[in-house]
Amino acid sequence: MNIAVLLKQVPDTTAKITISDEKVDESSVSKWSMSPYDEYALESGLKLKETSGGNLIAITCGPERTKKMLTDAAAVGADTLVHIPNDGVTDSTHVQKLLAAAVKRFDSHVVLCGKQAADTNGGSTGPGVAELINAACVTLVSEVNFSEGKFTTIRPSNSGIEKVVVDGLSVFAFDKGSTELRRPNVRGIMMAKKKPIESIISSDLGVNLEASNVKMNSQNPPPEKPAGQKFEGAEYVNEVVSKLRNEANVI
């Protein structure tokens, strides 16, 4: 089984984000990491590989720096590393087209990704790629198992959890589950270092990055949180209850 895992490198959740000229200043990001939901997709892909056998193809679309993330993926067990340079990429539909073309090129039987990237929180990659490759798509997946030619996934439902069983080409977009992520080890790191990264440009994938319908106007930092309020003494009980009920809406 060829298991494609789509990965995105994002500013680490601990990194400070600065805005200049109404855009996120990427050069000021001190640490780039694999998007956390993608880590769950990768872990689930590795588990699928261990139980059902196969080849795990880690695919990313991004600038040169994203190759480091592919090597990190190799350190925990990714077999094939695919980098698609993002030259000319202006929005998520471009990314979906490129990833979909790579998924096809590597003859993937199943595609795993995070439910959304931790930077843009778009959530369009999984469903978008599924649409382009004509695959089934299950989102918010916390677990996937393969047996007798079918994938059984676990996802939340209104009243608890539901099991969704699919067969054929499928895309699973992962949420954080109870799965514990594996750590790399020295042996994995030493092998990863020797693993080649295949770079495939958009034209080689047969993707034409025509003008996009989507335009990003500006990015802004979130508004600063107002300072907290402090109340001491019994005389404030009524006021605090009223604030909790009417302003915070928590009681």
């Binding site: 090597t71 990190d72 790399p184 790191i189 030493m190 990863a192 270092k193």
Partner: peptide, 10 residues
Amino acid sequence: TEEERMVRDM
């Protein structure tokens, strides 16, 4: 080296 940095991060 990249390997040393990966070990560091781990």
